[in-house]
């Protein structure tokens, strides 16, 4: 279990994380979503004590990360694919980490096997592809057989096969009762891996719910209508209590009604229509709408405007 408690991190004048609180429960994969620059990586770094919070704290299994007697057995983290020294082999890198935590050397071979890198274990990291480096990072995270796993943008650089492999790995780890947090800026990808979602924007919590709830709430269905007489149709629909929104290219979007109702109303009132079609906004659109909202909200300057956004 991870508990982020009123975490705030400021770099100079930039507020990277703003009074953020949430929990990550064991036994399921939690997706950590937000656009680039939302504060995901900063939050993950604060979990590991790499960044000192300006205020607030993070508890891992009930205590700050530094207080764990064997840190790698508490948390395994993949922070950045390029955290390898180009002159060191994957095996050498993992050996150093293992010995610092009294993890037997044999475990290094095991995790390299798990991530499918046994054959390149003795190759210098400078010659590894991004995907392979990413797998070394995942191997490092698994080294201490940890109860909590943090993966920052793990599918970066992985090929489609690797992505499927990672998805299964994350689910298996969660299935074993571990806490698994996977950050991403891709909603659709995360929805396939995660059971639960934490969405942040501008360093603040935007949503925290199960993936199913999030989909049900945010994948909005609506009816798209293209007509040369939008004003007349809008008035007709309004008189029946149906609210219209403006869609792209002068089209109308209505929700909370059926295709049949809209068609019948148009015929009754002799409004010309070119198209009446059912539409479903993708999860990605829902996510973008949600995070874009957070930017607008901040730009209006309701509370503590971000200088670079306000400008």
């Amino acid at each position: 279990m991870i508990e982020v408690q009123r975490l705030t991190k400021r770099y100079g004048s930039t507020l990277a994380v703003d009074d953020l609180s949430f929990r990550v429960e064991p036994g399921r994969v939690t997706g950590f979503l937000g656009p680039n620059g939302a504060g995901k990586t900063t939050t993950l770094r604060a979990m590991l004590g790499l960044d000192r919070p300006t205020s607030g704290r993070v508890l891992i299994e009930g205590r700050p990360y530094e207080e764990h007697p064997r840190p790698l057995a508490a948390v395994g983290a993949l922070l950045d694919a390029r955290l390898l020294h180009g002159g060191r082999t994957a095996r050498g890198h993992l050996l150093g980490l293992a010995r610092s935590n009294r993890i037997p050397d044999t475990r290094v071979g095991e995790v390299l096997e798990t991530v499918g890198l046994a054959s390149v274990a003795r190759k210098r990291a400078g010659g590894l592809s991004l995907g392979m480096s990413q797998r070394v990072g995942i191997a490092a995270a698994l080294l201490g057989d940890p109860r909590v796993l943090l993966f920052d943008e793990p599918i970066n650089g992985l090929d489609p096969e690797g992505i499927v492999w990672f998805r299964e790995l994350a689910r298996r780890l969660a299935g074993e009762g571990r806490t698994v947090l996977v950050s991403s800026h891709l909603m659709s990808e995360t929805a396939q891996t995660a059971d639960h979602l934490v969405v942040i924007g501008q360093g603040r919590l935007l949503a925290e719910s199960s993936v199913d709830d999030f989909v049900a709430r945010n994948s909005r269905s609506y009816i798209l209508i293209r007509t040369p007489e939008p004003d007349r149709l809008r008035a007709v629909l309004m008189s029946e209590g149906v609210r219209t929104d403006d869609g792209p290219d002068g089209a109308l979007e209505v929700s909370g009604t059926t295709l049949e109702t809209v068609g019948a109303l148009a015929a009754e009132n002799q409004v010309t229509v070119y198209e009446i079609s059912p539409r479903t906004a993708s999860l990605e659109e829902a996510f973008m709408r949600m995070t874009a909202g957070s930017v607008e909200f901040r730009a209006n300057g309701d509370t503590a405007p971000m200088p670079e956004v306000a400008r």
């Binding site: 770094r45 590991l48 004590g49 990360y65 530094e66 790698l72 922070l79 150093g96 935590n101």
Partner: peptide
């Protein structure tokens, strides 16, 4: 970063 994660 990985070193400090191992020995925080």
């Amino acid at each position: 970063r990985s070193s400090l994660a191992a020995v925080p």
